[in-house]
Design a protein around this nucleic acid. Structure first.
Lengths: 144, 144
DNA sequence: GGAAATTACTTCAAGCTTAAATTTTTAAGC
DNA sequence: GCTTAAAAATTTAAGCTTGAAGTAATTTCC
């Protein structure tokens, strides 16, 4: 294979390593301090970020997971009283999802600790590295 | 929260997005073209990379997954005749894992296509970005 | 050299995830 | 308007993943 593809493979291996490590630490943090999981946190964060007119499809597209996955995670949040489904009145195929007041409060009590934990995980990186990497990732995402 | 933690949170969100997208594309590639999965590929790649004296513990540490996970993925590869366990003769707790000749051949027939697919996924990134990001990721990994 | 701690691996239960199939509803093309 | 296609969500089966518990072997250290 070409020179360029080898460099990209090396990048991918490191990227995966750093991401997995960070996920493992965040999972541990959420489990120990808040008795919850990464996928539940991700769903709640998405629902917190966009409070209105979020459909199940929007949610799965936003989180880059399958529809079936979104369904079951929302099922569990709903069972715990943290999320709520509301059928659309104009399109009977569509279901809107949102946080309940309890879900909103639960997320807000998680958010600051989560942010601090992310900061701790990437503390080793200087501010310039953080910004440089964010910019590179933006370029990597262009459409895709 | 502080300015720095917000920047790191933004970085983390982008990092997760790019990684998930790449994983989804690679998973699709492996499924469609080789009828296999990411975790199986990862295990085979690790066993290919280090051919000698790889224990189950080494494997799970290397892949950043739990011991139980390594056990079941190796179980499946073994069932398909691609991997093989060999008990250590000096420590009866330890099990070495390795690719069978079939596993070796299977991995070799996958590797080039996988590398090309990774290159395709990150084609949007220029060579300088690729190298810069690799260096930043190295700095992020220092011990951790 | 024997008790206690540690290490390596597996098993288990629960939850996560995908891809495909299914159901229901809406949109498109004639 | 009617047929066909497309879209939204759920269900299902299979596989992935974790964390904890369990088994067996080795090491530590008194």
């Amino acid at each position: 294979m070409t020179e360029g593809s080898k460099r990209r493979l090396k990048l991918w291996i490191r990227l995966l390593g750093v991401t997995r490590r960070a996920e493992n630490e965040l999972r541990e943090y959420l489990r120990v301090t808040h008795d919850t999981t990464l996928p539940r946190f991700d769903v709640m964060a998405a629902l917190y970020r966009r409070r209105e007119n979020m459909t199940m499809s929007d949610l799965s597209r936003m989180l880059l997971v399958s529809n079936g996955n979104a369904t079951v995670v929302v099922d569990r949040l709903e069972k715990d009283g943290l999320a709520r489904r509301t059928p659309s009145e104009t399109d009977r195929r569509t279901v809107f999802v949102g946080l309940t007041p309890e879900g909103l409060a639960a997320f807000e009590s998680l958010a600051a600790g989560h942010e601090a934990e992310v900061a701790r995980i990437f503390a080793r990186l200087g501010d310039e590295d953080v910004d440089a990497m964010t910019e590179i990732l933006k370029r990597a995402e262009r459409d895709e």
